[in-house]
């Protein structure tokens, strides 16, 4: 599903050039659950942003479903993203001015789903995430665990093929964290590909495979049994 070859990304300031990704090559198959680990600054988040088409690489190739997307412009990336990729962030990133229902509804609006259909789909996914009773609350009225469940609901409402999770349990206590990991595992079992950046060995154990990065390069891959 995803094949990156010799991917490069630099960050430049006026005097210093930092290499974030150094000719990195990774392949992720459809239906996989991959964890990416590594120390701070190793390029994990940069990789996730490029995979999520939020950022573009400075070199190398990125095949998404066998389509070269490395040189896509912003409009094309936005288009591909909204139909195929869901995001889960460490800090939830819900819009404070919108209710739970409206936050989850957002991706459906941008993919042009008619409003009659949206209600059903949002309710279904809220039900699945067990936060239906909170549908009319605003994010700041929810606990961290609940907020992250809303974020996951928003990530999956469009039935994306790929979910990118950036330290999804980072702001949660262990019991809420485990709940979120169970949700992701369920989604993966239903066929969604998941790539998750994490610092937590515990969380990484939920995945099929761990890719360890150091200085923008793969240093090790563990297959989980």
């Amino acid at each position: 599903m995803i094949k990156i070859t010799e991917l490069q990304k630099y960050y430049r300031t006026e005097e210093v050039e930092t290499i974030a990704l150094n000719k990195l090559s990774i392949e992720v198959k459809e239906g996989e659950f991959v964890a990416i680990m590594g120390p701070s600054g190793c390029g994990k988040s940069t990789l996730l942003n490029i995979l999520g088409l939020l950022d573009d690489p400075d070199g190398g190739s990125y095949l998404f479903n066998n389509i070269e997307v490395a040189d896509f412009n912003e409009r094309k990336r936005a288009d591909l993203r909204k139909h195929n990729i869901g995001f889960v962030f460490q800090s939830f990133n819900l819009i404070d001015e919108l209710t739970v229902f409206e936050n989850v509804e957002l991706p459906l609006i941008y993919t042009g789903v008619p409003s009659s259909e949206r209600v059903g789909r949002v309710e279904k996914v809220l039900d699945k995430m067990q936060i239906m009773h909170r549908r009319n609350h605003y994010p700041q009225q929810l606990s961290g665990g609940q907020q992250q469940r809303v974020a996951v609901a928003r990530a999956v409402v469009n039935n994306p093929k790929l979910i990118l999770a950036d330290e999804p349990t980072g702001n949660l206590d262990s019991s809420n964290g485990n709940e979120v990991m169970e949700l992701l595992t369920d989604l993966n079992e239903q066929g969604t590909t998941i790539i998750m950046v994490t610092h937590s060995e515990h969380d990484a154990r939920y995945s099929h495979r761990i890719i360890r990065l150091l200085d923008g390069q793969t240093v090790m891959e563990n297959i989980m049994i």
Binding site: L54, R75, A78, K82, H83, F87, N93, L106, Y110
Partner: peptide, 16 residues
Amino acid sequence: AKEVGVRKVSGASRKT
């Protein structure tokens, strides 16, 4: 800014 980011991640283009 965060709202704009979330919207973009959720599929909004610059135009929208």
